[in-house]
Design a protein around this nucleic acid. Sequence first.
DNA 1: CCATTACGCTACGACGAGTAGCGTAATACA
DNA 2: TGTATTACGCTACTCGTCGTAGCGTAATGG
Lengths: 197, 197
Amino acid sequence: MARPRSTQADQAILDATRAVLVESGWSRLTMAAVAARAGVAKTTLYRRWPGKSELVVDAVAVLFDELELPDRGSLAADIEGVVLSFAHLLGHPETKTSLMAVVAESTTDAALRGRIKAAVVDRQKRLVVEGRVRAQARGELPPDADPVRTARSVDLIFDVIAGAVVHRSLVSAESVDAAWARRFTALLLGGLAALEA
Amino acid sequence: MARPRSTQADQAILDATRAVLVESGWSRLTMAAVAARAGVAKTTLYRRWPGKSELVVDAVAVLFDELELPDRGSLAADIEGVVLSFAHLLGHPETKTSLMAVVAESTTDAALRGRIKAAVVDRQKRLVVEGRVRAQARGELPPDADPVRTARSVDLIFDVIAGAVVHRSLVSAESVDAAWARRFTALLLGGLAALEA
DNA sequence: CCATTACGCTACGACGAGTAGCGTAATACA
DNA sequence: TGTATTACGCTACTCGTCGTAGCGTAATGG
């Protein structure tokens, strides 16, 4: 029975966060700058988010939603495709910077860890599930037997794909190009065959 | 023709950095605290390292040197072993916190990226090379043919192993236990067979 | 013994996180 | 159409940390 929060302000703040992130990177992103850019008071930010990390997680999570899995005709082509689009996404400064920054913060903050898991990790596992279903329809993979076993496989594959791409591009600091994607896919496909056997 | 820098102070500073890291984590690690713990003046830190990130990279790099690859009799057992010891290392707060923190910083700092690559990544690739040589001696893998191809394989395998373990334990926030290591190893071995074929 | 450099110390400026308090605007509900 | 209730903007503030300046002192090579 009172004034509700402006959803318009929410949107403006998240947009502004991404914009400032692109320009300044994580370390030089200040709450004051976000507030100014969004056209709201700094206090409004703190009324909605506990701090910088949480704000950035929410602002960045949607960026990963642009990842899709168009049907490229074979499991191999699908994997190569998603590897390359994930790498492309990680090429954007605001994505890599903020993803790593919030992951780093999360190592000493359990609540933040949960937020990342819900907003990014669990949301993107859909890609693995989708690719799997499609491959099964094509007859490239056997149908699911045990649901527990299936869930474990999805988790494993997700960590292998996402982990390898992130590690190569951000830690090893080497480019994820078509040639690398092809070799990685060959490795993964061979592994999948062994796993399902 | 003058007073040289105290190497003893260098050591004390690096030790202190690790100690403070354990107690406070990255975000609450202050240069003042490190200086106090090391028994030196804060200015002495800045005379040697440009900032916090560079100091922490140097302090943490040596932690990864404790990783070894004892001969467990088979390639599968060797991989499982190194996966588990890497996961164990990442279990220590100071390792995971500082590794992620410096990687995050490196996304906007090319010099730091180079420092990490030299001090951590390139140093630890020895593990992959060693496991590979050992497996070849056992006849589990074919001998090297093309050196370029070999180098690419080493890079790929390194990113897959390190990436998957880091991603699972730090991003997905799930534990890397013996069961997971076994499944991951099965996947990787299957992939290696396909890669070498 | 002397020039040179490192070191410890104190003090300081700059900046950003996060909070408090107040007046005002917007909305649900009666 | 009021009226209670809550969001909002604004200003001002505390607090902590980074990074630097300047100075006197200690250690070392020649």
